[in-house]
Design a protein around this nucleic acid. Sequence first.
DNA 1: GCGATCAGGT
DNA 2: CACACCTGATCGC
Length: 768
Amino acid sequence: MASLFSSPDSKSLSITTSALFLSSLASLPSTHAQPPSTSASTQLPPVPASVPPTALIPSSRFLVDAFRHAGDFTVAYFLSHFHSDHYAGLGPSWSRGLIFCSALTARLLVSVLSIRPQLIVVLDNGVRVTVDGWGVVAVDANHCPGAVQFLFNSSGPNAKRYVHTGDFRYLQSMRSDPNLLEFIGADAVFLDTTYCNPKFAFPPQEESVDYVVNVIKRAKEESRAAGERVLYLIATYVVGKERILLEVAQRCGCKIHVDSRKMEILTVLGFGGENGVFTEDAAATDVHVTGWNILGETWPYFRPNFVKMKEIMVERGYSKAVGFVPTGWMYETKKEGFSVRLKDSFEIHLVPYSEHSSYDELRDYVKFLHPKRVIPTVGLDGGRLDSKEAFALQKHFAGLVDETANKQEFLMSFHRRSTNATVGHDHEDAITRCLNQQEGEEAALLPAINFASEQSDSLNKRITEEMKKELSDFLPSWVNQDLILDLLINSNGDVVQAATNFFEQERYFFEEANVSNSETPKLEKNLTSDHGSSADANSPQEVPLFSQKPMEHSRNMVNLTAMRMKSNLPKRERKKSSNTANKPKKKGRSTASSPSTESSGGKQSTITNYFAKTMSAASKSETYDKETVDAHHNNMENGNQFADIVESDEQALSQLLHIVNGGISRESAISLLEKTKGDLNLAVDIFYSKTTNSNVFENDTVAQDTQNEMIDKCSNTDMVNNSSEATPKMPNLFIQSCLPQTDSVNISLPVENYLPIEHGQQLPPDSF
DNA sequence: GCGATCAGGT
DNA sequence: CACACCTGATCGC
């Protein structure tokens, strides 16, 4: 083992952080860092309130991924993995404490961030170490290389067990990890809630890897036959998604070109080497790695950048280019996932590839661990656990955490609600009231809607044909001009906002359009459509293929849209930046608000500019689902793409009930679905947000108390209290809970299933 | 002058 | 709000 790093005493595997840190500091060649002012004393200053509770292990002085909140109050810092948003605050001059991390992360810290090795304590996966009296274990997180989850357990009568996942993607195999098994029933799980919303569902990584490999293989054969030179570009970032590259290299029998910086990191990770699969010689292979935003912008919805792609292609002497953008972040994922954008001799494939857990995976993990609490670490306002966001996130696990530990708080908060409302106070009533409240909220919006109608004339004048065309280029071809106009009106002419609103409710809009047309939609998907021949598509009166007549239900649409927008309204203002309304203040936005002329040169000033000029004719025929692309070979019907959308209400109902995990009666669920016109996502959003957005929780002392308890009351216990060096005895509890959990039926994928064909087999329509 | 944070681009 | 990172500008001590 590398002796560079500080390491636990090899016999007892025990560390006292203050002592080790002081000796590590002393061993540094020259440092101006002052040891904690309290010098020899073991007293530490209190933890400042600015430290987010999502980063501090309760009743300890352990900070996880919180270097920017470092201070004199601790010397025990944990780093779960090497991504900048987690190591932010670390730098060459770091000297505020010890850094506990995996061996791989340790090497990256030293080679990339120039952290002095004496300050790093390597935790080998699965090896228990005693730190300040706590048992600490790192287990793999299935995120990026070197990423781990940390398990902390204290001993004694008030023993606590905590799991901090860092960033992680759940694997079924975690169920059999002996260390994780010891943490079933833990006091809290600090959970990576990046994708904690039912609308996030994506395939296993293997499936996405297969897709990339197969596309490259096929394209290679075809290009060999045609005698073309095809460049393959795969977008990644510094650390992560290496598995795609390794599999492509192995199964396509070629090397992978990376730039020197990436090569450096890959070498540190152990993927390098002379005869490895990676090379810095661009001529050695046709598969090259690019930066992560080169091929297009992924947010708020993917917009390819063919101009940049062409630059790279020409620069490297190729005549055709195929790009892959592996991304975990997709709005209404299924529509964008496994889709491909085509233009001229370019293809860009969107590949759902996530190194975070999907919604279902998060629930599986929580169901497995069955903790007393879930502490969301992503998606909170400033890491506050008493925020609406935290409540909303925690509600997704309401049925999966330890009921007895939570029931009290839930009952108390509901009791408080019902006291205010002078109605009954059981759970069902609370939910029903939420629905009623929802109703009231919609009604309250009517004036606003009318106002919007009155304003629409003046707004109409500000909404230019150019904006309409730009928006319509981004949206599916079945979207008609009326919907586009409505979207623009409701977004105040903000094209990006309009598109975002659209994708949030795409399914609803589609059904509205479908009802109006009483006809199955057909997407144009002529792969060989000639872009040049459709220049007249620029004309304003162009009608998208699917839209034959205006929507009949536009009033409802406006209603719901306004409601959704209102819920987005209380946007947090950035602490310091006093500026710009927090719209995407970049490209798409600027084009919408500043009149872009037709005259700009060949260079792509902004992506949307580019689209406005060159994509209008072609874009509507350039988005395809995976099936559509495969239709070349499979002769599949066009309608398959939307087979998932016209599923029965029964199915949506069943899925809603599954998602809310019995937190709502069947009747209430039906009512909720009716209100949302069958939009499952919207229904789930309402269920999970309305209960917490209601002002009942605000200014509610019960809620405050609940939150305080949520993190354990044992505040600021000095760590010397755990001075006993005795090896903590692991409570061997809950082993019986490790039985297979047969009640987890994975049918809760949102209705916009990413692979309607495959999953359709698992969901026979009469199975309910 | 320094590190921390922000704006904007890749 | 949002998968990550870098660079240069600006803030604040």
